[in-house]
Each structure stands twice: as structure tokens, then as C-alpha cells.
Write a protein that binds this DNA or RNA. Sequence first.
DNA 1: CTGAAAGCGCTTACAG
DNA 2: CTGAAAGCGCTTACAG
Lengths: 338, 338
Amino acid sequence: LTTIYDVAEHAGVSIATVSKVLSGRPYVSGATRERVLQSVNALGYVPSVAAQSLAGSRTNMIAVVIGYDPHDLFADPNLMQALHGIDSEITDRDFAMLLSCAQPGADHLSAFRRLLGGYRVDGVIVESGLGDEGVHLLMQRNYPCVIMGYSPLGLPCVHPDDYGGAQVAIRHLLELGHRRIGLIGGPPSNSYATQERLRGCQSALEQAGIAFDESLLTYGSWRAESGYEGAKQLMTLDPPPTALFGLNDRQALGAIRWLREHGYRVPEEVSVVGFDDIESAALWEPTLTTIRQSPFAIGQRAASMLFALIEDQELETRQVILSTELVVRQSTAPAAKT
Amino acid sequence: LTTIYDVAEHAGVSIATVSKVLSGRPYVSGATRERVLQSVNALGYVPSVAAQSLAGSRTNMIAVVIGYDPHDLFADPNLMQALHGIDSEITDRDFAMLLSCAQPGADHLSAFRRLLGGYRVDGVIVESGLGDEGVHLLMQRNYPCVIMGYSPLGLPCVHPDDYGGAQVAIRHLLELGHRRIGLIGGPPSNSYATQERLRGCQSALEQAGIAFDESLLTYGSWRAESGYEGAKQLMTLDPPPTALFGLNDRQALGAIRWLREHGYRVPEEVSVVGFDDIESAALWEPTLTTIRQSPFAIGQRAASMLFALIEDQELETRQVILSTELVVRQSTAPAAKT
DNA sequence: CTGAAAGCGCTTACAG
DNA sequence: CTGAAAGCGCTTACAG
């Protein structure tokens, strides 16, 4: 392995000078800089991150901490897109990302503790849903840190406009004449996204003079099965809803599956709306009307905020809310006359 | 931050002893070991990976190198599952994974070089499709390294039985009476998976006395659109195929979408088979007949092989081929009489 | 069984 | 503008 000493020798300077050139600090003569750079190139030198890190500078590495939830986690296209967004931001800065999952058994804090002690990273992006205690730990050591999701503690965070998006979805259904709208939610607890989307639903309904009806609400997971079960449950109500709002697309798709299996025509008899606009939404039959958000943009934004933090810049906004967009496709239609 | 010195002081021993206890080396008295462990616990000590790494021991970190292909990469549910599999293996060993994507512009080697020089990881898992030059680099430094996919260089690798799986898919269609079978392939070049699956198709067809017909083959990407386009292209042939084999599920699903949009009934008029068995395959309408593979298992296996390598154990097998399984669902039916 | 000392490859004041 | 030296937090022979 070629070290800084090799470069120094090759260039006929001291290692301190090599270091200075490489870190872009001033007070190096142009000629020296040139010579060093050439040596670096000639030798294909890449500094050891371990040594750099130990010596107290940057590690060029950020950690992405995600909760441990074997099923939901890695099956979630949104997470994937968010990672993609993060990657797209860090890649030109020559950063790498350390994926740190919470341990299955251990408390969520373990992931943070390991990070704090063991790995030296320049900053951390936390997937929400992990709770705030871990983040709190990071804060105390004032680690640069951004949350993808919500932060009750007021930490820098970025998330889609769940509240507004849900409102728009409900209003779309209301305009189509639907009055009984079944809601299929994500995890009942610990999910700000679910809560915010439900708040949005409630507000849109109440603005239309419709009381929020708890019996039209089911909870589950973010998975398709949860939508399937939700539809089953809601459609046995009397009278059944004329529209279903799956709080994410996978649930909406699962709901459609149940509906069609049981002879309901979508959208003629039952309209269905989703949230996310995942790839499948446009491929499904019928194609899914949904609220588009961009987890890719969330990841990107989180990363760029993190870099600002790392570089000690002031954040313009500590809470970034990315707008959503209604995408009308085939799965919604006017409510059938009753 | 608490260091090994703090622990040593707290336990009343030298840092060498603390180190010995922590690394599980012998020749420490039980009492001393106890005392050290208690101090570690009391202080919540976690060793600095940077220091450990510099001092020449394990980093407890592996790198996963993936090619840069913004669209396909992070949209691929298989990759996600593979990461999940890797994670499941490393998590109880308290390892972390460094996700290293090749740079957009730069040659693929850049990702490897950075790894080699900058980051000290104990081993590397390479997603295939990156070519072998980078892996070669790793080999030269004899870095423990496992490939998810194929290795022409004979490096340790693990992949599904693409060849056999494709054979089974084709035989399934043959048994249903199909004779003209359209093939929708992945990326034309650089994809061993595509090549192997096509070889499987060819062999199954020829065993049935049917010549491999290039005109019944389209290439594209692994995305759904590619299947959509493939179906469009293949169905304009005269006579059109009675069955389509999407070399992955997303393509198969895209093909079904095109077929239904254009009035073809699936499976009554055209049968469709996929490969992978992704989540959507069972949700789609019709549900998709497909060849099931487990990218999760691939990831797991790759990781466990890597650990064996890291621990200097002999590998029983350098090329692990995971079996696939035909899952018959609704998208295939007997060929219509002509 | 235990500890003193060198060294891993850098960065950062500090002198020059 | 340049370099000598200390120090980052560990591990690993090597003595004891």
C-alpha cells in the first residue's frame, strides 16, 4: 500500500506538505503543489481513512441508521429510493455511506452507540421511526445529524407533506362524490407519517362537513397484505365505503386485489387512492390514482442538509417539507348513485 | 469519548490487558477478565474502529460494491433483498456494511481503488455486472472477496441457477403446448444472468426439437418498460408467439400490461412467465407464474462465505448455485388450439 | 498472567 | 512557504 511517506519521498517534500496540499490548505507554493499532485497521481495514492479519522479530520463517511424491521425495511421501495437519493448526493463528494441497522433484539439505541463509539463518521442520517432517544444521543455529542421523517425534538428533518397530500387525496374523492371513505393506515403507533396523513384526512373530511368516523379506519403495516386485509374489513361494513384510501401504494394495491377477487369493479363500484406513486402504481390494472412523493428527493435533501451541517453552515430551514402531487389515474371514478 | 485508557484505569490494569480481554485472546486470569469486562460495561466503552483499523486488526466492516446505474440499481427489488440478506448475516457479528457505488462518470475501478486505499474493510462483496477488473484488483491484494453473480476468474461467487430455472420455465410452457415462445431479455451485454437464462431457454427448446429462433428474442433492461416494449415488438410477429417469457418479473409484468392494454387475454390467449418471484408477482392480476429465486439467500450466502474467507477458513465450494423453483400461478395456461 | 514500548498513517499546531 | 514532532486510540510482539 502506498502511504503519504511514499508520496512525500517521490515529490521530495515532507509529509506535512503532502497533507497540506491534499487537504487544500493555503500557503503552499504552486510549484510544490504541482509536484505533490503529480506524485499522488503517479503513485495512485489514496489516503487511509482510518488514519485520517484517527488523526482527527474527516472520515468522508456518513452513516445511515435504519430501524430493524426485517420485513418492512428492505421490502420498502421508498427506503431504496431514499438511499439512492443519498447516494446521488454523496457520490460526487467522494463520500461513502455506512448502513447501520439496529440490531434485531437489542434496543434501538445500540445502533447509535456503536456509531458514536466505534465508527467515526462525519454525520448521520436517521430514518424516522427509530424514535428520538437515539438521535438525542447523537445531539448531545453534537454530531451532525438529519432525520428523514419527523423530529419532535426539533432536529433538522425532511419529510413529504403527508398532511397536505392526504388532504388532497380525500378532496379528490369528495369531488367525485364519495362520502363514505375507508382509510387503510400504516403501523398504528410510532409512525408520524400515518398520523399526519390521518390528520390530513380528518381535516379534509371535516372541512366538507363530514365527521371523522373511526369505524372507517383500519391499521396494519405498510405492506400489501395489510391493504388486502383492510379492504376485507372495511367492505363488510354496512353500508360499505364507496372509496378506499390506502395510506401507501402497496396497501392500496393490496386493497384493489381484494376488491377484484371479490367481484368489486374498480373504479366503477369502488374507487381506490394510494400514496407514494411507486413504480407499480402506473403498471397495475387499473393504474392507481395516488399522491406522488419523492423519497429520492427526501434522501437527496437530507444528505445536502447534512453536508451543510458538517461544513458548519447555517441551515435555512430545520424542517424541510417536500410537496406532494395528486396523480389521477384509472382507479378513481365518480361515486355510483345510491 | 471513553477510550481504552479510561477502561484500563477504571479496571486498574494496562491498556494491553484491556485489549487482550476484548479481543478474546488467552492468557488473562479470570479475575482480571471479569474486572475489565465490568469496567467496559460501566463506562459503555466501544473501541474506535479507526484506531483498531490503523493498528492493524479487524475493522468489523465489509464493503458492498455495486455498479452505478441510477435507474436500475436502486429500483431493483432483488438488490434490496440481497442487501437484506447480507445485513442479516453481519448483524449478529456486529459488522457494518459500507455501501460503495461506482462513480457515475468514472470507470468502475474507481470504486475499488477507493476501497483499497481509503477504507479499511475486512472484506468485500461485489455485485456482479461490475466486470472482473475491479475484482482482480482486490484479488491481487488478496482481499477477501465474494461475488454475487458470476465470476469468470473463478473467484468465490454465489448466484441462482439461472440456467436451470430458465429451462424449467420453458419446459412448463412446452408442456402447456406452446411452441412459439417470445423471450424478453435483460441488458444484452455484460449480464451473465441474461446469458445463462437464455442458454437455459435454448437448451430446453432444443431438447424439445425446437430450434432457437433469434427473431423471438428481444433485449432491453430489467425494468418493466422493457417488458412492455418487448411484448409490443414480439406480438407484431407473424404468427405472434403464444407465450412470453420475461427474463425477470418486472419485464413479465410490463409485458402483461401491454398485452391487456391491447386486448389480449392473459393467460387464455397469451401465457406469460417471469423470473424472480418479487412481491408484486403474487399481487398482480393475473398472478404471475414465475421462477422463484431468493436474492435474500444470495446475500446471506455471500456474506457467510465472506466471513469464512475473512477467518481464513477453507471454502467448501467456490461457486455456490442456489436452486430455483417454478411457481405456477394464473398467468400461464394451455396454448390455444390453432 | 501482565505491562512498557513501538508503530499503524495521518493531521495539526508550532518553529523556522 | 516548509518541515520536525506530538498525538489520535488502538494492537502486537517482546520482556518480565
